[in-house]
Design a protein around this nucleic acid. Structure first.
Lengths: 192, 192
DNA sequence: CGGGGAATCTTGACACTGACTAGATTACTC
DNA sequence: GAGTAATCTAGTCAGTGTCAAGATTCCCCG
């Protein structure tokens, strides 16, 4: 934890991303300023550009990290419970637990959507999600029908978005995961 | 349609909002620049600020207009079909038909969320939506259970968001309304 | 162990932005 | 038709992203 005051910072990229996540979580992606991040890290105003190229490059790194974390979270829920409802809940849990990442990941205009690393991370998250919801999709409308999977994804994505933007009405459980479980059950629970 | 080159523009607010919608639809809300809009309208760089105060004021006006249009669209679908599935489809139809409005409406950090006009317009849209899906909510889990209504809202909102951000996989119907109908049916269709 | 190339960071500059103030011009009302 | 309000212009300021050139340090190869 030594804060060397040397010429070289030591781990600037990680520091910059971490600071960016703080800013995004508090004020949204549009409030991210490379110069401000540089100030927080105690380096010159152009240092971040050296590592990320430009603003879009920085947000690309954030998105890549986000898709990786999402893939991990979904795979973990799938492994632990094997229940597609819980995979959906994990999706919401990730969004609420990593609001800064989530706020960037689904706004391709903010970053370089054609970045190879990004495409790979995104594909990995997509696979985790699909694997988690596939049993539901199969039970609903045949093993190769995409509608049910899309409905599941849309539902949890929409719920997470509305929750994060503060557009949901009052009266819901304070724990977003529990609230999501109640709402997702409407779609996921099969009855008679 | 006379373009008077007089000192007074005539209808600057409407012109500015219209130009802003073009910019947002093409490059997102963060690409909106008051100076650019002023140039497009052929007025000085500070003229827009006179009407809207600042950037947030302009986007507040956009959001108010958007919630009004959404309320109208939902009420119209409800009146014409009386089917909650079609109200959900109309929600997606509005989002895809007015992407610029939609891109602003659910990002409160972009505008003045405490603006009275905005609150009123938002409440009106909320009522239209609730009225549209209330029958479904009642049929699903009792007349006063919010889960089903939230599930419906989350699903159509999530689908619209994913569609607009280009995150949905290929192979869907080219018409977003038709695609939405297929996906929403998974939730809305009651069987056995 | 030391020299040289590469990585990292600094400094300076440019065009652009939102926001503010003061003043010019036009419309509208009485 | 005069006076007031609405509308728009012009000038300025701090802040931003991005680029180019130079300074400093690390690290690997001889």
């Amino acid at each position: 934890m030594s804060t060397h005051a040397s010429y070289h910072h030591g781990n600037l990229p990680r520091t910059i991303i971490s600071a960016a996540l703080d800013v995004i979580a508090e004020s949204g992606p549009s409030a991210v300023s490379l110069r401000d991040l540089a100030r927080r890290a105690g380096v010159s105003h152009a240092a971040p550009a050296h590592h990320f190229g430009d603003r879009a490059g920085l947000l690309t790194a954030v998105a890549v990290q986000g898709f990786g974390l999402l893939a991990d979270a979904l795979a973990e829920a799938q492994r632990q419970t094997g229940d597609f409802l819980e995979v959906g809940v994990a999706y919401v849990g990730f969004a609420v637990g990593h609001p800064a990442h989530f706020a960037v990941m689904f706004r391709p205009e903010l970053y370089r959507a054609d970045d190879p690393e990004l495409i790979a991370a995104k594909a990995r998250a997509g696979e985790s999600l699909y694997r988690g919801v596939a049993p539901f999709s199969a039970s609903e409308s045949g093993p190769d029908s995409p509608e049910a999977a899309l409905a599941a994804w849309s539902l949890v994505h929409g719920f997470a978005t509305l929750w994060l933007s503060g557009n949901l009405p009052a009266g819901l459980p304070a724990d977003p995961r529990q609230a999501a479980r109640g709402v997702a059950s409407v779609l996921f629970s099969r009855r008679g």
